[in-house]
Design a binder for these strands. Structure first.
Lengths: 89, 89
DNA sequence: GACAAATGGGGTAATTGGGGCG
DNA sequence: GTTGTCCCAATTACCCCATTTG
């Protein structure tokens, strides 16, 4: 089953969290999020992992994106009734 | 329709409500407003939810400071004078 | 070969979180 | 009961430029 293993660029993840791309890089460097390194040294993040961290309280869908390479428009991903996330300091 | 799920920083919400960022943090801690935590522990708020709480248009009967100065000659003053605030006490 | 844009690394200032107090 | 301000430490944002990506 494809859970959405598409890889996101730091800019994409930064836009999802409303943070700076450098901050996403810092998360990967701190081990808070898995990262795949390109041969050149750049990082790519798995969409499934990013969305797992993005769970706050409510469904959310894609923000504006001119290039949506996913013709599959099946919002079957829902039912997220989990309580508040367990963000620990 | 456009829900406007942009994320706002505590400083943004504080500026919208004219309060201290710490107050916004307490609202999130008290569960009065949904919050998304970044892996670093900082909070992000949904603009749609903030605007829903920021409703000032429509009905506005909130003008008394709690001291009734004319108990008589008053119209059918119902006991409920609170706005649409769902905050329990 | 070239280009524009994004990313990474290092540094700094600004914001944020938590606790306690007025 | 709430909100504002103090302390602190942590996280985040913006500056530079070299490299990688497309």
């Amino acid at each position: 089953m494809d859970t959405g293993d598409r890889l996101l660029t730091p800019g994409e993840v930064a836009a999802l969290f409303r943070v700076d791309p450098k901050t996403v890089t810092r998360w990967a460097a701190a081990g808070r999020i898995g990262s795949i390194r390109t041969p050149g040294g750049h990082r790519r993040f798995r969409e499934s992992e990013v969305r797992a961290l993005l769970e706050g309280e409510g469904v959310l869908d894609d923000l504006d994106d001119g290039a949506n390479r996913s013709p599959n428009s099946g919002p079957a991903q829902s039912g997220n009734h989990g309580p508040t996330n367990a963000g620990l300091h």
